[in-house]
Simulated assay, not measured.
Amino acid sequence: MDNSLTEYREASGLSQRALAEHVAVTRQTINAVEGNRYDPSVELVFKLAAFFEVPVEDLFHPDVELERTVSEIGD
């Protein structure tokens, strides 16, 4: 899953360690998420979005293709 975490973190003037401390994870976790080597938990996704005060979709960009339309969900 692609993300814009590095851009938001750098724009805020934070190190990976500082961001990690704010959201209660390790620096290695932030590094892995930024490097697209780790898909964060839903809890961490929401913590990061809340920290930067942005919608989840601004930070994370899943590479998921929807095969069904909304009208097909009820079928």
Rank of each mutant, 00 (worst) to 15 (best):
F51G: 01
A20N: 05
E65R: 04
A50Q: 12
D75M: 05
F51Q: 02
A20L: 08
R37E: 13
T69I: 00
R9E: 06
I73L: 14
R27Q: 15
F60G: 07
S71L: 10
V25C: 14
D63I: 07
E65A: 02
A32L: 11
V45A: 14
S15W: 08
E34K: 08
I30H: 03
Q28M: 10
Y38W: 10
P40G: 05
V56H: 12
A49S: 15
R68T: 05
E43T: 13
Y38I: 05
V56R: 09
N36L: 07
R68M: 12
D63H: 11
E72V: 06
L44H: 01
M1I: 05
V45Q: 09
E7S: 13
V56F: 12
H22K: 15
V70D: 09
R9K: 05
K47E: 13
R27V: 01
R9L: 09
P62D: 02
E7M: 08
S41Y: 06
F46S: 01
N36Y: 02
E72H: 05
Q16L: 06
L59Y: 01
V54G: 11
V25L: 06
R68S: 06
A49Q: 08
E10D: 04
P40F: 06
V45K: 10
D58N: 12
G74F: 11
V25K: 04
A32N: 15
V70I: 14
L59Q: 05
V45M: 15
S71I: 09
L14M: 13
G13L: 10
A20Q: 04
L19R: 03
E21F: 02
N31W: 12
Q16K: 14
G74S: 09
L48Y: 07
L14D: 07
E67P: 00
L48S: 09
V23E: 01
E7G: 01
Q16E: 12
R17L: 14
T69C: 00
V42E: 04
R17E: 15
Q28R: 11
G13V: 11
S71R: 15
E57F: 04
I30N: 03
A49F: 07
E72Y: 09
I73M: 09
E21L: 12
G74L: 10
T6D: 05
F51L: 11
